[in-house]
Amino acid sequence: MATQSITLTINGESRTAEVEDRLLLVHLIRDNCALTGTHIGCDTTHCGACTVLLDGTAVKSCTVFAVQANGREVTTIEGMEGETLHPLQEGFMEEHGLQCGFCTPGMIMSSKHLLDHNPNPTEDEIRWGISGNLCRCTGYQNIVKAVQHASNKLQETTEEGGE
């Protein structure tokens, strides 16, 4: 059984683990680190429930090996909240962006990537940005509103910060 020792940063915390080469990143996050906010949905690179940020880029963690994250920075849904909820988390709450909630962590991580690169997206751009995330409750309407809420909030904060 081939194993490697890897060190990576998850939500700002440095972690070292002895992992099998074939261990998927999502299993490292959920099983080794007990961060179960990241979900496993389809396990076939379709649904996006397992989306995390790898060095700031949204990826499906069921399709990346843990060893590939060696020396890199991972952000999961647990890393979104600071002293208060992140505007995206707040948006999903305010706008009823979730029903069963299973897709929500992935939706939020994909939306984080989107807003980091495009702070003021159009509705089309939001829909495009989350097109790798499936909501089986089909609650897309409110998910889009939740992302718009976060976009507005983040821009207000930026403007206030600039004054």
């Binding site: 996006g48 990826v59 499906k60 994909s110 097109s131 790798g132």
Partner: peptide, 9 residues
């Protein structure tokens, strides 16, 4: 090709 998350890698 696929979706934006897949295209990131």
């Amino acid at each position: 090709i696929a979706d934006p998350l897949v295209r990131n890698l």
